[in-house]
Computed example of a mutant assay.
Amino acid sequence: MTQRRWRRLILLAVTVFCGTYGLLVRTAAGQRLENAALRGADQVVWVQDAANDVLNLITVRSLAGAVLILASIGLMRRRPRLSLAAVGLVGMSLGLTEVFKRVLLPRPPLAVAPDVYMHNSFPSGHTTIAMSVLLALVLVSRSRFRGSIMLLCMLYALGVGSWTLIAKWHRFSDTVGADAVALGVACAASLWLSRRDLVQPADTTELWPRQVLVTLLVLVLLFLVGASLLLLENAGTDLPAGQARDFRIFLAVTALSGACSIGTALLFWWTWFRLDVTPRLPERSR
């Protein structure tokens, strides 16, 4: 039953990834929508420098530090394969993203736009790093701490996705594609652990009440989705083309990007609900 969850989420991730690329990257209408969001980002130039500064903190050194922490957590729990799965999750997610964005999935110029708008690549490497590290932390954490860690680290993952849109490093489609890549690889890593009989029911409860955590995140997700849909509807029906319309589209896709990040983390957390990884037994106990 548990493996079925991960298989279905892998299928969902592939569907979202392909649908996003097909509808937003490979169509003129999708590109016009995202071009409008990029123009809308020009109206928040006072925070673009801050966005650039935050994104520039994601370097090879910081990524190596995050991977080292993930590996150390698994080893401290006497679960070396869990360390391998967490590190592999981050590495494979980033590797796939680089292949997709640089080799396999170009963004053709289907809508009239300045050249500076066409440099964005699908999917976003920065969002992939942030989301894959978040999901790896969910994977490697003890069951009782998993929800609390997800909630605390969610702010960072949400921030990176939003900053990439504000700084115009990427488009909305790029962040959604990155979330899909991270989710699919995270579920594949979970399947790898499960097929080696390393996944067991957890006999502990989380420190934070699950109902409060889930309710909080679901309410935020629903608010962001509702706000984005309302903004898109108003932009499409009440406003002529111009700065006001572009700004509403920018706000809408930024909110929807945050909702996608929250939904990605919640879905993966749900697959590990009341589950944990068995420790490696000492030699004398075998």
Rank of each mutant, 00 (worst) to 15 (best):
Thr205Phe: 10
Cys187Gly: 05
Trp270Phe: 13
Pro106Asp: 08
Asp276Ala: 10
Leu165Tyr: 12
His170Asp: 12
Leu84Trp: 13
Phe100Ser: 12
Ala265Leu: 05
Thr128Ile: 04
Gly19Glu: 08
Thr127Pro: 00
Leu207Trp: 14
Leu57Gln: 12
Arg171Tyr: 06
Arg245Met: 09
Ala130Phe: 09
Thr15Lys: 03
Val181Asn: 04
Asn56Pro: 02
Ser285Trp: 14
Ile73Thr: 13
Ser121Glu: 15
Leu222Ala: 13
Ile149Ser: 02
Ala178Ser: 13
Pro201Trp: 06
Ala167Gly: 13
Leu231Thr: 02
Cys187Asp: 12
Ala41Lys: 01
Gly95Asp: 01
Arg4Glu: 02
Asp115Ile: 14
Leu219Val: 13
Leu183Arg: 09
Met150Asp: 03
Ser228Glu: 00
Val140His: 06
Thr127Ile: 00
Ser93Gln: 09
Leu104Tyr: 12
Arg102Pro: 08
Leu94Asp: 11
Ala244Trp: 01
Asp174His: 07
Leu82Pro: 06
Ala13Gln: 11
Gly177Asn: 04
Asp203Met: 09
Leu96Glu: 10
Asp179Asn: 15
Gly40Tyr: 06
Leu11Asp: 10
Leu11Ser: 12
Glu98Met: 09
Gly147Ser: 10
Leu256Pro: 04
Arg32Ser: 14
Ala157Lys: 04
Gly65Phe: 10
Leu24Met: 12
Phe122Pro: 08
Leu38His: 11
Ser132Ile: 08
Met150Ser: 09
Val185Thr: 06
Ala13Thr: 09
Arg286Ala: 04
Thr278Met: 11
Phe247Ile: 01
Trp6Cys: 05
Lys168Leu: 08
Ser162Asn: 02
Arg61Pro: 02
Arg4Val: 14
Asp246Gly: 01
Pro279Trp: 05
Ala13Phe: 08
Ser132Gln: 10
Leu183Pro: 11
Ala50Pro: 07
Ala241Asn: 01
Val138Glu: 14
Tyr21Phe: 03
Arg81Thr: 08
Met154Glu: 12
Gln200Glu: 15
Arg7Gly: 04
Leu198Ala: 08
Gln48His: 00
Ala130Leu: 11
Thr278Tyr: 02
Trp169Tyr: 15
Ser121Ile: 01
Leu151Phe: 12
Asn52Pro: 01
Glu206Arg: 07
Ala182Val: 00
Ala66Tyr: 00
Thr278Pro: 03
Val176Thr: 10
Leu151Ser: 15
Pro279Ala: 14
Leu193Val: 10
Val14Pro: 08
Thr59Tyr: 01
Ile73Cys: 07
Ala235Lys: 04
Ala202Tyr: 06
Arg102Cys: 05
Val160Ser: 03
Asp203Cys: 00
Arg61Val: 05
Val176Lys: 11
Ser148Ile: 09
Thr264Tyr: 06
Leu198Lys: 10
Thr27Ile: 04
Val140Asn: 04
Ala113Gln: 14
Val199Trp: 08
His119Cys: 00
